[in-house]
């Protein structure tokens, strides 16, 4: 195998390790403390928010407004509707700003 193939396989291996590792570690513990359980329930909110946050400062006002619109609509409506409307708002705003 050449170096590039080895590099890709190593990257794939560490990535898969992260994707099953959390479950493997957690499943070694029988009972979970309520604070650990609360932290795990917060994973989707916390990590996804941390992932998106820089988008608020790396673009312009059109993108910030589109994120706010997407969030507000998602409080009430299905995700698909929120993505469609906020994307349309973004395209519109970019044409004017």
């Amino acid at each position: 195998m050449d170096d590039l193939t080895l590099l890709f396989i190593a990257c794939a291996a560490v990535t898969y390790a992260t994707r099953c590792g959390g479950h493997l570690i957690l499943s070694r513990f029988g009972t979970i403390h309520h604070r650990v359980s609360a932290a795990l329930d917060a994973v989707p909110t916390a990590v996804m928010a941390a992932l998106v946050a820089p988008s608020l400062v790396t673009h312009g006002p059109a993108e910030v407004l589109a994120i706010i619109v997407s969030g507000l609509i998602a409080l009430r409506a299905p995700l698909m509707f929120s993505v469609a409307v906020s994307t349309a708002v973004l395209v519109g705003l970019r044409a004017f700003i």
């Binding site: 989707p44 998106v52 993108e63 973004l90």
Partner: peptide
């Protein structure tokens, strides 16, 4: 087409869903 920014908008909607 705004395609470059769909990922952040989709993730925002997912976050608010929680």
């Amino acid at each position: 087409f705004g395609l470059d920014f769909i990922l952040p908008l989709y993730f925002t909607g997912l976050v608010i869903g929680f």
